Simulated assay, not measured.
Amino acid sequence: MIRSRLIAPPAAEPVSLAEAKAQARIEHDDDDDLVQRLIASARSSAEQRTGRALITQTWEQRGRPQGGMIELRRWPAVEVLSVSAGTVPLDTDAWRAELGEFPEIELLADRDAEVAVTYVAGYGDTAEDVPAPIRQWILVAIDTMYELREAEVTGTIVSRVGYVDGLLNDYRVPVG
């Protein structure tokens, strides 16, 4: 079993308050706190749906290697901070990292021990680093959550706009 946990969250969001308000056509400041929460929720949802870290963040992943390999769960990986077998930190000559898309760690020693990898993932530190289709999906999600604040909508005809979720298709990380 592989377990991941967020160590250091992103320092910024992939869309600004002004962008979100423009998308939702909000012309007042009364709901700014709500919109900020919707931005964080939409970013989190996009990250869960795609398996990606959008803005730079630090993750820890624990598990047993398969054939000496550990596939990292958050893409794109940009830096490996540490690799440990059990509780013992491994020297950098005991492992090799493939970063970016399809990131993985190859163990050159201790190939069967449970391993903990601490790494940095994300497109960069600013919103402009995040691909435009993901940012657009986030903006549409924020607008939808702002307009439909209840768990259920009664007495309305609802049609799904197919292209919206398609914005994330090219960014989904393949599972297993």
Rank of each mutant, 00 (worst) to 15 (best):
A42T: 01
E27H: 09
S82E: 09
G63Q: 09
V158N: 11
T50Q: 08
Y123F: 15
I105M: 07
G86E: 07
V161T: 15
D93V: 02
S16F: 01
A11P: 04
L17N: 00
P65G: 11
V120W: 01
A8D: 13
G155Q: 05
L17H: 01
L107E: 04
D29H: 14
A85I: 08
S45G: 10
R74Q: 15
S84H: 09
L54Q: 02
A42Y: 00
V153D: 11
Q66R: 13
I55G: 01
Y123L: 09
Q61H: 10
D30K: 07
I142P: 01
A22E: 06
R74A: 15
G100I: 02
E60A: 15
R96V: 07
N169G: 14
R37N: 08
A11L: 09
G51K: 09
L17W: 01
E27Y: 08
I138K: 00
V120G: 03
G155I: 06
S16N: 02
Q48L: 07
E152I: 12
R64V: 14
Q66D: 15
R96S: 12
Q36S: 08
Y146L: 00
A113T: 04
R64P: 01
V78I: 15
I134M: 03
E71F: 12
A12Q: 08
V78Q: 14
P131E: 14
A20R: 01
V88F: 14
I7E: 14
E79G: 10
S45V: 05
G68N: 14
R64Q: 14
S41P: 01
E13A: 11
M145H: 04
G63N: 10
Q136K: 12
P76Y: 02
A8H: 05
L148M: 13
L99Q: 14
D143Q: 14
E101I: 06
A127S: 09
L108C: 05
L17R: 00
A40F: 00
A22I: 04
